[in-house]
């Protein structure tokens, strides 16, 4: 359900149009096309919209201006907007994905392992953008194996163990890592989740 609309039977494009955005765990295999340019990677969810294309042809002048703006806004270090994404550093590849997924005006954002393998500066940057999306009112579902990351970003935490949710916790200051750890390892389980099979931790 996105904004009261059932999208479970819709195509990927319809789901995205309904307001879903997704930052996948695997940046190279799923999140980008390594051999394609930054521009081609960013416009992939919007090239068919009227600003970007006309009578079956893509308006590259508009697309490139758009992407230059995003490169600046998302601090992507690249010689040009036509530079192949595969030749960028890991942090910059992730920023290209963010530049696309965060600017499609999503109401629900699924974010998987957003800072895996990134340097400190980039991690800071990613956190700032995610918080920005939160304040804008988007629902963010953060899936992460990094406990610090979850404690930094999340409002509410669903702990999973063995493929099912075992606890739902509010992220207040009092929450101890130790407590989460016990749920993670399957030592403890909240009674209401003993039969439920659901997914994911929640931000």
């Amino acid at each position: 359900m996105i904004n009261g609309k059932d999208v479970s039977k819709e195509s990927t494009r319809q789901r995205r149009e309904a307001g879903l955005a997704y930052i996948p765990e695997d940046r190279i295999a799923l999140g980008t096309s390594a051999s394609a340019s930054i521009t081609d990677n960013i416009i992939v969810d919007r090239y068919f919209k009227s600003d970007f294309s006309k009578a079956g042809w893509i308006r590259y002048s508009f697309a490139m201006t758009h992407c230059r703006e995003l490169i600046h806004r998302f601090d992507i270090r690249s010689p040009s907007v036509l530079f192949p994404v595969g030749l960028l550093s890991g942090g910059n590849i992730q920023k290209v994905i963010l530049a696309r997924e965060f600017t499609s005006d999503p109401s629900i954002l699924v974010v998987c392992e957003p800072t895996w393998g990134l340097d400190v500066r980039s991690i800071r940057f990613v956190y700032d953008r995610i918080n920005e999306m939160k304040t804008k009112g988007a629902g963010v579902l953060l899936v992460s194996s990094n406990l610090d990351e979850i404690l930094t970003l999340a409002d509410r935490i669903l702990v999973m163990c063995g493929g099912r949710v075992v606890a739902s916790l509010a992220n207040d200051r009092a929450l101890a890592r130790r407590e989460i750890g016990e749920y993670m390892m399957g030592i403890a389980c909240q009674p209401e989740f003993e039969e439920v099979e659901m997914s994911n931790r929640h931000a």
Binding site: R13, S33, S35, D40, D45, W57, Y60
Partner: peptide, 23 residues
């Protein structure tokens, strides 16, 4: 420069990416 050409290039370069992005 065409839309179909773009879709062909993206699909050819990484079909999973194309599907993920909604092509």
């Amino acid at each position: 420069f065409s839309r179909l050409g773009y879709e062909i290039r993206i699909t050819g370069s990484n079909i999973s990416f194309g599907a993920y992005a909604g092509i």
